[in-house]
Design a protein around this nucleic acid. Structure first.
Lengths: 190, 190
DNA sequence: AACGATACGGAGCAATGTTCCGGTTAGCAA
DNA sequence: TTGCTAACCGGAACATTGCTCCGTATCGTT
């Protein structure tokens, strides 16, 4: 998975340096203030100007994608692994959902950004879904095939439901998205 | 429930007229563009200035509350009625949740505004919860007492979960919040 | 008819995402 | 080493949006 090492046109050294600074700064700011942090804050943290951010990442969403890409990959790759190692497909599905929830809950406000109508976040929404829906579909199909769950739900619906349940996690200690998600997954059983 | 007719200090005629115009305009704009419509649009639709809106409704949330108040009341009042007329408490709970979902889904973007961290919408959030959580609690308690559902979930959690599931309804025909909510409610069963 | 309290309208402020452009510099060629 | 140009940089400027302020117009009373 060579990211972009020996590509068509080697970037200039300063460009490469700034891109890394930006990614690090964005990660730090996201942790501190959530993914809704103003672009200016990220630019300041990285010690670069606004223009530099938007040249490297045409839109906020692209920056977010870049920052979380490897975590999304890890989540995607966990799917088949769980299917192979779990006692039943349903157990694998439940475990995977749990991983997915952990990912969403860990990042302030990331879940909210999965909304398809979040203007400007189309790219992010598309990326997440393109990468994870197939994984979830496979888990879901397996669990349906084993007769453990009902068959009238698509992976997209399930993931979106789970994503929605995770919105606002952490802002209110009385609301624990994990419990609600567990309920949802329990409701899936035949 | 005389709204504010013969109150401490009779408002001026133009003030009363404008308040009504504002409510009508807001309702129309909310239907057309969702509750996130710019305040300026509402002012324009009502044919008044920005100042007028903010004098009558100190904050966007207050305007939204005013527009939807009677529907929230209807929802609140349906709770005890359903409890009395349904076969079992669980059936009453399910029916009430369904009414609640209908309410949220009908209004573009209303669900998203139930988030406690939605800066500026504290009032709206508080109003909704103050009015509806007690109703939901009673339904939940009754269903727990009849042994139909588990007892480790608060009304707040359930309502927030349902509210979250309804976020973005209508923006994607492949996502039907009602089905997810049904799943959630099904997961409640013992 | 005059007057004071009340309401009105819209310019203006602050925050934020995004675009633009003049100045600077890395990397290559002679 | 020196010079050149394409790529890059920073931040000012623009557009949108929630909200505030204040001079002016209007209402209702005396």
């Amino acid at each position: 998975m060579g990211n972009d090492s020996g590509a068509v046109r080697p970037k200039r050294a300063d460009a490469r340096r700034n891109e890394k600074a930006l990614l690090d700064a964005a990660a730090a700011v996201f942790v501190a203030k959530g993914v809704d942090a103003p672009v200016r804050d990220i630019a300041a943290e990285a010690g670069v100007g606004m223009g530099t951010i938007y040249r490297h990442f045409p839109t906020r969403a692209d920056l977010i994608i870049a920052v979380f890409r490897h975590q999304v990959e890890a989540c995607a790759e966990a799917g088949p692994a769980l299917l192979a190692s779990s006692a039943t497909p349903y157990a694998a599905l439940a475990s995977w959902i749990s991983i997915f929830v952990d990912f969403l809950v860990t990042k302030h406000g990331l879940a909210a950004v999965l909304q398809p109508d979040n203007a400007g976040f189309d790219r992010l929404h598309t990326y997440f879904l393109d990468r994870l829906v197939p994984v979830c579909t496979r888990l879901l199909d397996a669990a349906v095939a084993s007769g453990e769950i009902r068959s009238d739900l698509t992976a997209l619906e399930l993931m979106r439901g789970v994503g929605n349940l995770c919105i606002g996690a952490g802002s209110d200690p009385r609301y624990d998205p994990r419990r609600l998600v567990d309920l949802l997954v329990a409701g899936l059983r035949t």
